[in-house]
Simulated scan of single mutants.
Amino acid sequence: MWFKLAPDAWQTLGLTALVLLVLTALVFDLRERRIPNTLVLLTLGAGLVVNLIGPQIWSSGSGLLSTYPGAIGIKGSLLGAVTGLAVFLPFYLLRAMGAGDVKLMAGIGSFVGPAAAINVALFILVAGGMLALVRMVWVGKTQLVLFNVVTALGQYVPGSVARFNPATQSADRMPYALAMAAGLLAYGAWIFSGHAPLVNF
């Protein structure tokens, strides 16, 4: 290792980089309703670098989002990226989430590793559901959203003629980077307030 950082300093550096990148994605998603591939690649690359230059602790539960911070190395970073991608990929295939959101989750996974990526994704999904409910009520489209949910689920029932196209029938589109930022923040607060991860391996 040519570059040494104390665990606390490394964690502060890594978390700062991750938060800035996710907030930048949020700004793009709010303004343009998309997350650029360049930003996704930058996030993925930054996650790999952060876990390459950090103190290698190699203990269970270590990582960026840990009370015992330590880098997980290139292998752990890549596994985190693949895990983040795999967790959100089904939502993209169901057309419930954009490709940029899925790729950004892979970038987040490269920072935090596979176990934390699953935990962050769970918090993001809860945050996304809560924000969607608030937005649904706020814009007054509760009936249309519920109709779309029933139609979307109904198309998977054998013999059903219901078809749902999110591109043309969606009641509203929430910038999902907002849920990603909120979920990441919530999971960080959960861990650093002394709670154990929901999933750990």
Rank of each mutant, 00 (worst) to 15 (best):
T83P: 06
L184G: 14
V145L: 15
L178G: 13
N165R: 10
V120S: 06
I118K: 04
G84F: 07
W190V: 05
A99V: 07
K4Q: 11
D8R: 07
L131W: 12
L15K: 10
L41P: 00
G73L: 03
K141Q: 13
G76C: 07
Y68K: 12
I124F: 04
L198V: 13
S110I: 02
L42V: 15
I74P: 02
A96I: 01
L65C: 06
P55A: 14
P55Q: 11
F88Q: 03
L30Y: 09
A196N: 12
Q143A: 15
L48P: 10
L39P: 02
L21A: 08
T67Q: 11
G76W: 11
G129C: 12
A9N: 13
A171R: 13
P114C: 09
P90I: 08
I57A: 14
V157Y: 13
L23Y: 07
I124L: 05
W190I: 05
A6S: 15
P7G: 00
A117E: 07
V157Q: 01
A115F: 04
G45Q: 05
R31G: 02
L94Y: 10
A116R: 08
G47N: 04
Q11W: 06
A96D: 06
F201W: 14
T168V: 12
L79I: 04
A115D: 11
D172Y: 15
L146S: 13
F3G: 00
A99I: 07
P158R: 03
A81Q: 06
P166C: 09
K4G: 01
W10V: 09
V134Q: 00
W58S: 12
P114I: 10
Q155V: 08
V126L: 15
Y176F: 15
L153V: 14
Q169Y: 02
D172M: 14
G14M: 02
W2M: 07
D172C: 08
V19F: 09
L20F: 13
G159A: 12
L42R: 02
G154H: 12
L23E: 09
Y176S: 04
A181W: 10
L48Q: 02
A6H: 08
G129S: 11
P90R: 08
Y156C: 05
A46W: 04
A167N: 13
R163G: 04
T168S: 12
T43V: 11
G107E: 07
A179K: 07
F201Q: 03
V102A: 08
P175E: 04
L13N: 03
G188T: 09
T168E: 15
A117M: 01
L131Y: 11
M136R: 03
A17C: 09
I72A: 00
Y68R: 13
A9S: 15
T16F: 11
A171Q: 09
G54C: 00
S66W: 09
G63Q: 07
S77F: 10
R163V: 13
N148F: 09
L26R: 00
V126D: 00
L89T: 06
I57K: 11
G14L: 02
M174L: 15
N51M: 04
T38G: 14
Q143K: 14
P36A: 10
L104R: 08
N119W: 05
R34T: 07
K75Y: 14
L79S: 08
I191L: 09
I74N: 05
R163I: 13
R33F: 14
P36C: 08
I72N: 00
T24N: 11
L13S: 01
P158A: 09
Y156W: 15
A86Q: 07
V49D: 01
M105L: 14
G98P: 12
